[in-house]
Simulated assay, not measured.
Amino acid sequence: MADSRLRLACLLCVIFAAGSVTASKELISKMSTGFTKVVDQCKTELNVGEHIMQDMYNFWREEYELVNRDLGCMIMCMAVKLDLIGADQKMHHGKAEDFAKSHGADDAVAKQLVGMIHDCENTHQGVEDGCSRTLEVAKCFRTKIHELKWAPSMEVVMEEIMA
């Protein structure tokens, strides 16, 4: 379960990522829709508070500190619900790529996103607690997306929340 949470965090990031700076906002919006479909299910199952929803809302804000272990648990739950984790409780690269492509990413971008998540997983594989590891992977991925200038604007995030 610990590895699957880490993989889920990475996969969540894949859902929110994009291929080019201009197209990224549209792609991220489309990909995030897939994840938001399972938010309520995981929120109920995990009995998480509104503070986790606040973390999810602020996920792409670079200055916002992601420190709550429960966010990692939430991300993992969502990835499991979307069948992005294999029986070995690791991110299923093929399914993750297919998920990104089904939301508008091309082959190269889908592979790049999965590769970025995989790198983050490898960097944080020593974190024993699954939820904490997932959180660290998500933070790593967020940093990589910001470095590429692919993070969605708050307007895009707000539109998705209101939709």
Rank of each mutant, 00 (worst) to 15 (best):
Thr36Cys: 12
Ala79Cys: 04
Ser24Gly: 13
Gly86Val: 02
Glu26Asn: 13
Phe16Ser: 11
Lys25Pro: 06
Thr33Glu: 14
Asp119His: 11
Tyr57Met: 13
Glu121Phe: 08
Ala79Glu: 00
Asp129Asn: 04
Lys144Ala: 07
Gly104Arg: 00
Asn58Trp: 02
Met53Arg: 07
Leu11Thr: 06
Ala96Lys: 03
Arg142Asp: 02
Leu27Lys: 12
Gly86Ala: 02
Asp40Thr: 14
Cys42Asp: 02
Gly115Thr: 05
Lys95Met: 07
Lys144Gly: 04
Gly49Tyr: 04
Met91Glu: 06
Asp55Val: 00
Thr33Ser: 15
Gly115Trp: 00
Gly72Pro: 04
Ser102Gln: 09
Glu26Pro: 08
Ile161Lys: 06
Glu128Ala: 10
Leu71Trp: 04
Gly130Thr: 03
His103Asn: 08
Ser32Asn: 08
Val137Cys: 00
Leu66Tyr: 08
His51Tyr: 12
Cys131Thr: 00
Val80Asn: 12
Ala105Gln: 12
Asp3Gly: 09
Phe35Ser: 10
Ile28Glu: 12
Val38Arg: 06
Ala2Phe: 05
Arg142Thr: 02
Ser29Phe: 10
Asp98Gln: 10
Lys111Val: 11
Cys13Phe: 14
Asp107Val: 08
Lys149Gly: 11
Val39Arg: 05
Glu62Met: 12
Val114Asp: 01
Glu128Asp: 11
Phe99Lys: 02
Thr22Met: 10
Thr134Ala: 15
Asp106Ser: 03
Thr143Asn: 11
Phe35Met: 15
Leu11Trp: 08
Glu26Phe: 11
Phe16Arg: 09
Ala2Arg: 05
Gln41Cys: 09
Asp98Gly: 05
Ile75Gln: 13
Glu50Phe: 15
Ser32Lys: 05
Met53Leu: 15
Ile161Leu: 07
Leu113Thr: 00
Val14Gly: 01
Val157Gly: 00
Lys95Asn: 11
Cys73Ile: 00
Ala9Lys: 01
Ala9Ser: 08
Trp60Arg: 06
Leu6Cys: 14
Met1Trp: 12
His118Glu: 14
Cys13Pro: 07
Tyr57Ser: 09
Cys10Gln: 13
Arg5Pro: 08
Phe99Gly: 05
Val137Trp: 01
Cys140Phe: 04
Glu63Ile: 04
Met56Gln: 12
Cys77Gly: 03
Leu84His: 04
Phe16Tyr: 09
Val127Glu: 01
Leu46Thr: 03
Ala110Thr: 02
Val127Leu: 05
Cys140Thr: 02
Arg133Ile: 07
Ser153Arg: 01
Gly72Ala: 01
Leu148Ile: 04
Asn122Leu: 14
Arg142Lys: 13
Glu97Met: 07
Leu8Asn: 10
Val67Pro: 07
Tyr57Asp: 15
Cys73Ser: 02
His93Asp: 10
Thr143Gln: 11
Glu121Thr: 09
Phe59Lys: 02
Val38Trp: 04
Ile117Val: 15
Thr36Ser: 14
Ala79Arg: 03
Glu159Thr: 06
Gln89Lys: 13
Glu26Leu: 15
His92Arg: 14
Leu46Asp: 01
Gln89Asn: 15
